[in-house]
Amino acid sequence: MAEITQLIHQYLRHNKKFPLVFCPGCGHGIVLGSLVRSVHALGLPKDDVVIVAGIGCSGRIAAYVDFNTVHTTHGRALTVATGIKMANPKLTVIAVMGDGDAFSIGGNHLIHAARRNIGVTALVLNNFIYGMTGGQCSSTTPEGAYSHTCPQGQLESAFDIVELTRAAGAAGVSRGTVYHVKELDALLAEAISRPGFNLVEALTPCFTQYGRGNGFKSAVEMFKWLKASCLPVERYEKLEDRTGKLPIGTFVRRDVAGLETRWANMRQALAAKKGGAA
């Protein structure tokens, strides 16, 4: 408990009024905790950490943490993060986004950030729904699920965030849940330390906007659902019947230099060539 208090004092903003804006039962606060713990575990100075957030419930996380925080426009967090990282590669840049943020309105930015492997960690809080606007389907809402904009059930398929980001060329791709907190901490710390573009999908329940409309009796039930359906990728792959199961863990580990590093190397080579010629 003492350690938690210490982390709170060290990493949460004193001048920001609590409690959090999140609904009771929301998993976002747990992701916030994970973020703080992983940064702490890596021993990163607060001045060197930049949280760039998009719009939506997840975007509000930025205001609470005592890092350099930028709350951008809807879907554009990665573009601003890219600019910051290119401008100052020494900074640890973490983009915090929701599923609608990262994969609907910001989908193009995400696949390009992954393709060019800019050294940014993308933390996507996937709750399968637009929570802040009151429960509309997103590009990760499962087929058949209810939302206010698909009252007869979602007709479209959902993105598999992991597979999409893998295909786009990211250096690292992993998935965790707010039920498996210790694992989430570790996944996030690993992602932050790996060069290039790293994505962590955190499954986090939204009882208010998603759970109630889709047959969950309580927020607790949603956590139980996460517990029951998610299992480590190693075990998942051995399953014969994967119906209703979802793998968690790290799916992609590639050894690539971040774009900012490749840029710096190119500059160095140019300077050496110039120096040699003179």
């Binding site: 930028v70 600019g83 910051i84 390009h112």
Partner: peptide, 19 residues
């Protein structure tokens, strides 16, 4: 940096300016 569209370009410029 050449970005994927003009929205992203402005985003990157804003990020760089903040930095």
């Amino acid at each position: 940096i050449q970005m994927e569209d003009e929205i992203a370009s402005m985003g990157a410029v804003i990020g760089a300016s903040l930095a």
